[in-house]
Amino acid sequence: MSELRIRKRPKYLDLFSIMFSLPLPGVLSIFHRVSGVGLFLVLAPLLWLFQASVTSPESFECFVRVAAHPVTKLLFAGLIWAFLHHFCAGIRFLFIDLDVGVDLAAARRSAAIVFGVSLTLTALICWRVLL
């Protein structure tokens, strides 16, 4: 009599139980999502700031005052990271869609490159623009 083995495959659907044991490409992917949410949430304030910056000399002054505030700068630093991470990780995903760098070693290497490039550029831009 043949042994019938029903394997219960694990279903990793609990976000918080998997979040802290993810390999690098997984961390990159969840940060892609987190940064996307962050960017979505600030669309309205950014549109307001952009409007202030281009409308009139007076509103431009107002924009400069808001942008020079330390709290705004801190938020901008976070946004610059969110944008650069989303940008770099997005380009990596586009290459993977084109079947470039799909195997495990290449995917882990490109994930490391994304973190290296996005964090370096974030530091560089924060240093040159915000400080």
Binding site: L43, A44, L47, Q51, V54, T55
Partner: peptide
């Protein structure tokens, strides 16, 4: 609704310039 509003908003900002 939010994104539709943003679309109108950015159009208004740009074409007032």
């Amino acid at each position: 609704l939010a994104l539709t509003g943003y679309t109108a908003w950015i159009a208004a900002i740009l074409w007032r310039l």
